[in-house]
Write a protein that binds this DNA or RNA. Structure first.
Lengths: 110, 110
DNA sequence: GTTCATATATAACATTCTTATATGTAAGGG
DNA sequence: CCCTTACATATAAGAATGTTATATATGAAC
């Protein structure tokens, strides 16, 4: 798995991107990130929950308490319009980081 | 320029990579990083100097005081064998982050 | 009734950035 | 001779985002 120093800052992008495909609660979000990256990118829930609060305060996502069919209380987050607007420049900034690091460090883009 | 939250963790890789091309002192290192990334990646000296100390303590680089032709005192860092050894898995880890984020977030690799 | 998967929450700590501040030398222009 | 700019290193205070550890609670399965 990718270490903490390197993945730092990716959680925000990851959460916004996954929520783009539909609303989700924290526990499931963590699993999606891990699954969709084949285990390469993995966040603890203790990192994700505070991140979700911050993103809600910034207006990028909106959470609502729901009850699952199994009777479980959980907080479902969905992307807001502001969140969608945020996603595009954020992707671009990451893309720029990639090309900058390729030029500088010969990191492959396989 | 790429923001602080996103570039976080890149300094280590950047320093090792630039030093791979030859020994350099901190001030010039900062300039190389900025130039070779066309201004996309930029570090303040206040970030680089402590980073250089940490990397020296870890044994990845070795610093020695030199005096330039202009009579300036400066600390010249060169990559150690351990530093070279570190660089390869570090590049691989970044490369894995790239592909993980591409899969997860549709960040382009232009 | 005990254990496992689900689900959220918080505290204490580490790391790596930021801005601001400090010191000092060399070179060049006025 | 003084002032400004470029060179060169150093440190402090604070922000952001990750870590491990701990706590709580429910439903399902055995």
């Amino acid at each position: 798995m990718i270490g903490p120093g390197i993945k730092r800052g990716t959680a925000e992008l990851a959460v916004l991107s996954v929520l783009e495909d539909g609303p989700l609660h924290g526990y499931e979000l963590a699993r999606r990130i891990e699954q969709q990256t084949k285990g390469a990118l993995r966040f603890t829930l203790a990192a994700l929950y505070p991140m979700l609060y911050r993103m809600e305060q910034r207006g990028w996502i909106r959470g609502s308490w729901e009850t699952s069919q199994q009777g479980r209380r959980r907080r479902c987050y969905r992307l807001t319009a502001a969140g969608k607007t945020k996603l595009s420049p954020l992707r671009k900034e990451w893309s720029e980081l990639f090309s900058a690091l390729r030029r500088l460090t010969k990191v492959s883009h396989a």
